[in-house]
Every structure is written in C-alpha cells, then in structure tokens.
Design a protein around this nucleic acid. Structure first.
Lengths: 145, 145
DNA sequence: CTACACCCTATACTAGGGTATCGAGTCAAG
DNA sequence: CTTGACTCGATACCCTAGTATAGGGTGTAG
C-alpha cells in the first residue's frame, strides 16, 4: 500500500524529479488527489501508473502535448479503443514522414560525400561549392522533434 | 554590382529577416564588412553567398553550430576537402542514428496498433494497458533533431 | 526545542532558431 | 525642414521538456 504519497515519495517511486511532477501538473498531465492543510500535495497510487504512461509514451516518441490527449481520452468515459488507435496512427504517420525527410537528408549528404576527394583544396571542394551555389532553397524550417 | 548593401537590402536579396542577419552575427556566422560612421552595417556580396551556404546547410539538416564549424573550415586557409568531408560524415552518422531510433518507434507503434480492435472499450485497449504496464522504461530523453 | 529533511510558490535558466518590440538615431526625398 | 523609412542595440518572447534556485513554511526525530 503506497496510498497517499507525498510528492517526494512519488518522485522516488516513479523515478522522476520532484520538479518534473510539478511540471506535469502545470502541463495538466497529472494532479494530486488532494492536499494537506499545509498545502503539501498528496497522490494516490494511480499517479504512478500515470507517470509510467507518460514515460512509456515518451519512449514511443509522443510529445507531452500528445500524451495529454492520450490521457484525456483514457480517462474520458465512453472512449473507444478506436479513438486511441487513431491518435496512435497519427503519430505513426508523423514518424514515418520524419523518417522520409531524414532519409532525404541522408541521401543528399551521401551524394555530396561521394563527390569529395580528401586531398583537394577547399576551393575545389564540391560540398562547399554545392552549398554556396545559388539554387532554390529548401529550408523546411520548424517542426522537428 | 550589389556591393555595399545595408542590412535591409541584404535581408531582401537573401530572403531572410533583418533580425535573422543580426542573429547570425551574434552566432558569429556572418559579420558586416564594415560600418558607416553612423553604425549602419555594410555588407559585400560575399555575405549573400554566406547566407546561401547557411540556408542550404540547414536544408541538409545541419544546425547553426555545425554550420559555424563548416564556415570556419571553409574560410580557414589550408583546409583540405577531407576536413569538410569529415564533418559531413559525422552529420550523416547522426542522421542515420536518428532514423534508426524513429524506425524503432514506428515498429513499436505498428505492433501496438495491430493489437487494437476499434470497438473495444478503453479498459480492454492493449495500447493503454501497454503504456500503463510496469516494465523497464526506455526513455532516451534529450538529443533530437 | 531544535535540527534537518522535506515541501511550497515563483522565477529563471538550458538549447535551437529565430521573431517582436522598444526608444532613439540616421538617411533621403520633397 | 520635415516626414517616413530605415537602422541601431537591447531586451523579451515563442516552443519543448524539463532543471535550478531563492526564500519561505512544515513535519518529525531526538
């Protein structure tokens, strides 16, 4: 029975820092079951499962924002498994898109590396001249993870 | 001849914001050739090539820090093509590692999705129970791109 | 009762890549 | 000479996922 833990005990048993738990609370991922008159947070054992959920989902590449969605689905009555699956599938598509993008980068770098002979001076370097060349820029800024 | 541009003209012709150029200067990626007595920055046309270099390198997934290395290699006398290639290869290895990580995530998500039947209630959902289960956590935090 | 560990809130900091705003000075045209 | 566009430096803000610290209050063992 580990019911009614303080934040430090929960942090200990869940393997995260105290500030992280408070951070999750700010992010609305986790809130204490109650408070002592002094203001101390008190957690029931569901809190541990919630932190595990968060950590596992992070391990699968979900962001805290997405985990928030997942958690609210989880605790909303009437949620069907399909709702969870849909979110998971969205995430999968995301990841697959990122893999494709990175593969594009990797191919470009490999082809640059092939054009480069180690002994050349910098002025002859194809990598450099490629980077300085004036051509349509494809900086797809933002949105990484 | 576009020699001796002000920051606004350079920004215009390079397709970036004025503040971005000043930001690059703070990051030591780009500095004006000189200043007017009033303090206005003046740029030669090499500045445009440098910005192109930066943007293309970003397009290949380099961070500004790495681009700084690349640029200082580029403008250091005696740099051999091999030095540039080495940095590029490091980046490629980085990207390949990241791809592997994402593929691991994707595989895990696909296998979770297979276990999930759309009509099940949330209590029966394998995705949820998997996330809540107590098992060795593998959150490889930090270091993304 | 005192020491010490714990907890509270609030705030600031990290990295990365910028964007936005401020008050003040400058430049060129009319 | 004035107006409006431009520039200056400094500072603050955005996002993510936390970590760190300050200045105070609380809980408990000896």
């Amino acid at each position: 029975m580990t019911s009614q833990q303080t934040i430090g005990q929960l942090a200990q048993s869940a393997g995260v820092h105290v500030q992280t738990i408070r951070y999750y609370e700010r992010r609305k991922l986790l809130s204490p079951q109650g408070r002592r008159p002094s203001g101390y947070r008190l957690y029931d054992e569901e809190a541990q499962a919630r932190i595990r959920f968060i950590k596992h989902a992070q391990g699968l590449g979900f962001t805290l924002r997405e985990i928030g969605e997942l958690l609210s689905l989880r605790f909303k009555t009437g949620t069907r498994c399909g709702d969870i699956r849909r979110t998971t599938q969205d995430k999968l598509r995301d990841i697959e898109a990122r893999i494709k993008e990175l593969q594009t980068w990797a191919r470009a770098l490999r082809s640059l590396i092939r054009t480069c002979r180690a002994g050349q001076t910098i002025e002859q370097c194809r990598i450099v001249s490629h980077l300085e060349k004036q051509h349509r820029v494809t900086v797809r800024a933002k949105k990484r993870t």
